Amino acid sequence: MVVAYPFNKTGTLDLDEAYYEAQKQPGLVRVQMPYGEPAWLVTRYEDARFVLGDKRFSNAETANHDAPRIRAEMEPGGINSMDPPDHTRLRTLAAKAFTKRRAEELRPRVREIATGLVNDMVTAGPPVDLVDCFALSLPISVICELMGVPLEDRPKFRVWTDGALSTSRLPRGELMANWEDLRGYMRDLVIDHRTAPRDDLITALIEARDEQDRLSEDELVELCVTLLIAGHETTSSQIPNFVLTLLDHPEVMAQLRSDPTLIPGAVEELLRFVPMAIAAMFPRYAKEDVQVGTTLVRGGEPVLVAIDAANHDSLRFPDPDTLKVDAPPNQHLGFGHGMHHCAGAALARVELQEALRALLLGLPRLHLADDVEWKKEMMIRSPQTMPVGW
């Protein structure tokens, strides 16, 4: 039997019951997304780690198939649609900018930005929109400084990113124009950096392109686009998600305020606990017959890995639907696993930790001031606007 997919609904952060039902099945579940061919859906933790880490599953093969997807249009390529050796070559370049050491070196600046944003909120007075005044501003400021992107161009990013991650049936012309505007912006920025080099990530990538011949011009532009979107969108969405979750758990919020040393562990638990995605993304194609649990996935068949469901697998996480911020490290899959593990995970952790620290300590009576307006027809679930007071 083939089941209609995705399961998760917009306007909530609940994990749909269909995922729990799928975990009770003896094997993988066959699902049908709105477009593309049917796929196997992975919902259990051990199966997820296996598929994400096994080189017999290919991301690049999606280009040769009618891949399962939410939108009618096939998504542009990029590093997430590559296999080694091309993936290894590009990821190695990008990863140098996002090492744990580099992220920790950036922590004082991230804290300065986060504290400044909270002070600006206090000066403006409640209510303020947490999304626009804090959640978007913090990661965008950081990634702009890291890459060498003018901060005054920030408003453009929200338009481009919303278009890139939208699940709506945008007219083909509008969708393509959105991507070309973003690529065109990056091409112009690369030209500007090539003319006037700076001490930033774009200049470093240009040097790899021009001097070491490790990137084609198109790869350079696509990598910059990917880093710009990935460098702020997920974090800016998780900040309000985390705050909403903590507001639903006031005892946990009080625990973190009384002992801020728990915040790093709380971020890890929240990354596990909050199911942000509407659906599993980036199908992987089996290059040969592969046994996944009790299911034989035939060569040429696609597999979707539902990370949010795997993070709520009771076989791996006892009492998975209880938020436990003082629990030990839990090896969640919030940043993926294997060769496509998020290259910016260390920086995202620093940003999320400093965001919670600034909000919890700087706004001791933080609360919702009005109804939350949710993003609609997007691949990820998060507030579009979130009025708060304190």
Rank of each mutant, 00 (worst) to 15 (best):
L90I: 04
T203R: 03
L201F: 06
Q255L: 09
D129S: 07
R109Q: 14
P383F: 07
M281N: 13
E351V: 04
D370C: 07
R209Q: 13
I140K: 13
P283R: 02
I140R: 13
G173V: 14
N59D: 02
K287N: 07
T294S: 14
R187K: 10
A103F: 15
A346K: 00
E377K: 04
D188A: 15
E269G: 07
V350F: 00
L228C: 03
L296Q: 14
A67V: 02
Y285H: 09
D16P: 07
E152F: 00
T167I: 14
A124K: 14
T10M: 15
L333M: 01
T261H: 12
H249E: 14
N64R: 01
A309C: 04
E75K: 00
L165V: 14
S58N: 06
H341P: 09
D289Q: 12
R198L: 11
M253Y: 01
L106E: 01
A124C: 05
R183W: 10
R30P: 10
H312L: 05
Q353H: 01
R298Y: 08
D213E: 15
D371M: 05
L356Y: 03
M74P: 03
T235G: 01
E17S: 08
V297K: 06
G265N: 14
K324I: 12
G36N: 02
L13H: 14
V350K: 06
K287D: 12
D132G: 10
A343P: 12
I70V: 10
R298E: 06
P85Q: 00
A177R: 15
L244N: 07
P155A: 05
A254D: 15
P240N: 03
Q238M: 13
L223H: 07
D210N: 01
V128A: 13
A348R: 09
K9M: 14
N178F: 02
P329E: 01
Y45S: 05
D218G: 04
M186W: 08
G36Y: 02
M378Q: 15
W374K: 03
P260K: 07
G184F: 12
E75F: 02
V243H: 00
Q291N: 09
M121N: 12
T226G: 01
C144I: 02
L130C: 10
T12H: 15
H367Q: 14
I307T: 08
Q32N: 02
W179D: 03
A177K: 15
H332V: 02
L175N: 08
T226Y: 13
E105D: 15
P320H: 04
P302R: 01
P364C: 03
E301M: 09
R102L: 14
Y5S: 08
V274R: 06
I380W: 11
L270P: 11
V252D: 09
E217S: 10
L93P: 09
D192F: 06
S258C: 11
H340T: 00
Q25W: 08
D132L: 11
A277G: 10
D213H: 15
T167V: 13
T261Y: 08
A279I: 03
H312Y: 04
D181T: 13
L228G: 07
H312K: 05
M276L: 15
A355G: 07
